[in-house]
Amino acid sequence: MTLAPSPDVVERRPNRFLGILRALLREPIGCTALVILTTVLLLALLAPLITQYDPLFQDRRAVLKAPSLAHWFGTDDIGRDVFSRVLYGTRISLLVGLLVVTFTMIIGGMIGLISGYFGGWTDMIIQRIVEALDTLPSLVLSLFIAAMLGPSVRNVVIAVTLAQIPRFVRVVRSEMIKVRAQDFIAASRVIGASSLRIMLTHGVPNLIPTMLVMGSLSFGIAIMTEAALSFLGVGTPPPNPSLGTMLAQGTRFIGIASWLIVFPGLMLTISVLALNLIGDALRDVLDPRRR
């Protein structure tokens, strides 16, 4: 991952976020992505207003019904409304994604900052730990942690966060090393600024563009990993409607009830797509060289 924002980004301080948003809206990709993401978000957040079905309620007289006006996405094998489950499942996906990204940014960002700023032994030790986490394929690592902790949303967040941290640490660290090498940091040191102050005033603002891009990509990966873990039975536990759990349920009815596989998968793909597009657009906006 090479996401070096140009140093001139740093100078555009005032109203940075609004500026980014405005720039995003000017780009066709960014605009599309924002529209899709907003739609997904609204569908998930307003689920109780959009559908009157309880995602957990079993209508035992309407089992495995194909999509119809009453049940837009059909019903599952114990009569639960698939449309409602997809909406509420998206909520869980987004929740897991949001938590994972937040924790990864905070923990990964902090470790990366420390590692990059101090260098030396601190850096050496942190890098070895990060490498240890990174020797395993991320899903294998998450799977292992989740299997050990047992299925629950909290444990999924822990498992996915741990697997994502190494990437953040690495990127933030290399950014920090670059920042540290710049003249104004040396200047701050000369005038007696503390390490913490330097990191906060110069390190963090410089990292924001990179973090935004990585965060949106990470969000997508987190959603996919949650689905994979749930599919494998170590993720979000039943009866919660997770998109991955729904796909696992659907495998028993391949060739019989295709709606059980099509709709949850579609929603999953659309959510990840929107996040990836946001990431792409952000990268274009924040890093002029990549246009």
Partner: peptide, 11 residues
């Protein structure tokens, strides 16, 4: 899966 469904049913 069936076992999980039974659990949900009993719930």
């Amino acid at each position: 899966e069936e076992m999980v469904r039974e659990g949900e049913w009993i719930q």
